[in-house]
Design a binder for these strands. Sequence first.
DNA 1: CAGTACCA
DNA 2: CCCT
Length: 217
Amino acid sequence: MDDLLSGLRMPERVAPGALFLPGYAASIEREALRGIAAICALAPPHHLLTPGGRRLSVAMTGCGAFGWHSDRAGYRYVSRDPVSGRPWPAMPRSWRDLAREAAERAGYPGFEPQSCLVNRYDTGARMGLHRDCDEDDLTSPVVSVSFGVTAAFLFGGAERHDPVRKLAVESGDVLVWGGPSRLAYHGVAPLPRRTHSLTGPLRWNLTFRRVTHRQGP
DNA sequence: CAGTACCA
DNA sequence: CCCT
């Protein structure tokens, strides 16, 4: 009966090149949350500033060869954590494998992510509609994995004013977009005040990307 | 508030 | 040439 109320929770093509995979990461939920804690101990999440000087409501850190950073100087990928000056923590093998397998399932075989952005959403945190356009390699997809409190993921189109689909992303859900959807606008509605048995009030999101082309580091 | 900008 |  819950299925009738909450949706069928079956893999669903949300747009050309975009596939929603409910529960695809559920089996690594606990391990992933331990990994997130370990990464946060080495590279604590913090609220980045936009080039315009505004503070993002989402707290960010990351792992892998490249991490995302923004400040007054602009948006970019960097190979060291600007806070610590050290390289980003290693990307856990199980995360990389999961992202690769989800990408393959969505029709993007051979995905080798170089960056995993770790986003922490506290109650009320949101991500405005935007598109991921700062990667050199736009042939690789984006793989987004959610843990913790359920959020409303907004998935639009190539134009800012294209209609937006609202997807309830639960803990363990995965969304992959690439090909004709690679530059689709997307975002996250303000996180509701809820609790999850493993994360309390928080939602964690892992976003895997390839930053450079194959010959890159 | 993840496009940081068209000299009107 | 978006208007968060």
